[in-house]
Simulated assay, not measured.
Amino acid sequence: MDARDDLIPASTSDVAEVLMHALCYDGRRRTHDAAELMARLVSERLVAYLERSGFVVMRAPTSNAPDSSRHPHPHPHRR
């Protein structure tokens, strides 16, 4: 199975949030050259532009937290 087989479309709010984080942080370290408000405005404008240009951003589905319990989950599809 190819890693791209389970991709799902990313929501515009997810894309804007990731772009905002990229503008405000360098890895885990906060950058002080970009204010949060400016980062939010820029990320929202970039997302709007990408949508108008026909881009579709895909992302991998979120994975659940690892389970260290030896007991089976009552709903197998939620593992």
Rank of each mutant, 00 (worst) to 15 (best):
M1I: 06
M1T: 06
M1G: 09
D2V: 04
R4Q: 07
R4D: 12
D5W: 02
D5H: 05
D6N: 15
L7I: 11
L7Q: 14
I8A: 03
I8S: 03
I8M: 03
I8N: 02
P9L: 00
P9G: 00
A10G: 04
S11T: 10
S11M: 05
S11H: 05
S11A: 08
T12P: 02
T12V: 01
S13C: 00
D14W: 02
D14V: 00
D14M: 02
D14R: 00
V15M: 04
V15N: 03
V15T: 01
V15G: 04
A16H: 04
A16L: 04
E17G: 11
E17K: 12
V18S: 08
V18Y: 11
V18H: 09
L19F: 07
L19Y: 10
L19M: 08
M20A: 03
H21F: 05
H21I: 01
A22V: 02
L23E: 03
L23M: 06
D26V: 11
G27M: 11
G27W: 13
G27I: 09
R28W: 09
R29V: 11
R29D: 09
R30Q: 02
H32V: 14
D33E: 13
A34H: 09
A34M: 13
A34C: 09
A35C: 03
A35N: 01
A35R: 00
E36K: 05
L37P: 00
L37K: 00
M38W: 12
M38R: 13
M38H: 11
A39Y: 06
A39I: 09
L41F: 06
L41K: 14
L41R: 12
V42G: 01
V42R: 14
S43G: 12
S43H: 10
R45K: 07
R45Q: 06
R45F: 04
L46T: 15
L46V: 15
L46Q: 13
V47S: 06
V47D: 10
A48N: 10
Y49D: 11
Y49R: 06
Y49L: 13
Y49S: 07
Y49C: 05
L50D: 14
L50Q: 14
L50E: 13
L50I: 06
L50S: 12
L50V: 08
E51H: 12
S53P: 06
S53E: 15
G54M: 15
F55L: 07
F55M: 10
F55V: 08
F55G: 06
V56P: 00
V57H: 03
M58I: 02
M58G: 04
A60V: 07
A60E: 05
P61M: 11
P61D: 04
P61T: 04
T62I: 02
T62P: 06
S63P: 05
S63Q: 13
S63N: 07
S63C: 09
N64A: 11
N64D: 14
A65Q: 15
A65G: 07
A65E: 14
P66K: 03
D67P: 00
S68K: 00
S68L: 02
S68G: 01
S68Q: 04
S68H: 00
S68Y: 04
S68D: 06
S69Q: 13
S69I: 12
S69N: 13
S69L: 12
R70S: 12
R70P: 05
R70F: 12
R70D: 15
R70G: 15
H71D: 14
P72S: 09
H73P: 03
H75S: 05
P76H: 14
H77L: 12
H77M: 06
R78Y: 08
R78Q: 11
R79I: 11
R79Q: 10
R79W: 07
